[in-house]
């Protein structure tokens, strides 16, 4: 009887964790709901439209790119994550047609033209953001006060800009930055909700604790050593979002733990240099992009020591 049954063979191992690329991307998207919610809460309908437009464009671009490259389109959430991340680092009042251009650039050029997920060198969302900063400098630096769903937008400065007027009392300033009711990009203002999303990913084992710790730690230490208000530097701007969601991107950061620490320390140093000495108020985006560029180099030279290989000096 049993002989008639068709018996299949397959290579081992015959067990798989089931944590697929799609699932990982899905969980990242889920964690990003927290900072997104903060963005919509503080900046209202237009922020929501920016997020929706960016995601829709990203997914559509991926679909078209896959068709053009004659590859199967897999709805694996990675385009959703890219679209969402891009929206979160845009100013709340970005015109939607610009969002479409930026998102299409992120997916079409930065990701698919390099060969798709796994082959891209630069973080697509950050590269898209940098591209938009180059194309639309005025719109990309127009910030508004967090007024929720109120009708009119009032422009303002972000905490990292000169001319930012915050509370005199330090504690109230920190509280403001921590909760997020300050001017800034859609998803960057509330350190609290970024932390919630980030800790969720840490708890699920999706991201490695080394990245945010090394990145934020470096910025804190360096600003402290330079006599700056280091708590302010941790909470202000895109550092939290960058440390938890951008510097942790698998594809564009090193593969070894040592390499990851080098990457994040480097990004931290660059961020501080740009913030304090550069011509731009914020440096997270460019410092991560720069480290993306040298990631292949890091991966080439930073290796793991195999089991049983004698350390130098041992006989």
């Amino acid at each position: 009887m049993m002989g008639e049954k068709r018996i299949l063979i397959s290579p081992g191992p015959h067990l798989w964790s089931g944590l697929s690329v799609s699932k990982i991307m899905y969980l990242v998207a889920l964690a990003l709901i927290f900072p997104s919610a903060a963005g919509v809460y503080f900046f209202g309908y237009h922020a929501l439209s920016v997020i929706a437009t960016s995601i829709a464009t990203a997914v559509l671009t991926e679909y078209i790119a896959k068709r053009l490259r004659k590859r199967p389109f897999i709805m694996d959430w990675s385009a959703v994550v890219t679209g969402l991340l891009l929206a979160l680092i845009l100013p709340p009042m970005t015109p939607l047609w610009m969002v479409v251009i930026g998102s299409a650039f992120s997916i079409g050029i930065v990701k698919e033209a390099f060969g798709g997920l796994g082959h891209n060198i630069f973080n697509p969302a950050l590269a898209g953001r940098a591209f938009m900063a180059a194309c639309f400098p005025a719109e990309m630096t127009t910030w508004v006060l967090p007024m929720g769903f109120a009708a009119d937008a009032v422009t303002c400065a972000t905490p990292l800009n000169e001319g930012f007027v915050g509370p005199i009392d330090k504690l109230s300033l920190y509280r403001m930055l921590f909760m997020g009711n300050v001017g800034g990009s859609i998803g960057e203002t509330s350190a609290l909700l970024i932390l919630v999303g980030g800790l969720l990913l840490l708890a699920l084992g999706i991201i490695n604790w080394r990245n945010p710790v090394a990145y934020i730690g470096t910025v804190a230490l360096l600003t402290f050593a330079l006599g700056q208000d280091f708590i302010f530097h941790i909470l202000a701007g895109g550092l939290m979002l960058g440390a938890f969601f951008m510097a942790t991107d698998y594809v564009t950061s090193p593969i070894t733990n040592k390499g990851r620490i080098i990457f994040c320390v480097g990004a931290g140093i660059l961020t501080v240099i740009i913030r304090l000495f550069g011509g731009m108020p914020e440096g997270v985006c460019f410092s991560i992009l720069f480290m993306n560029a040298i990631t292949p180099l890091i991966d080439r030279y930073v290796k793991v020591r195999p089991y049983g290989l004698k350390k130098a000096g041992e006989k």
Partner: peptide, 11 residues
Amino acid sequence: RDCISCGRCLE
């Protein structure tokens, strides 16, 4: 699928 350099296999 293509490797996403997540580093899990190394760990």
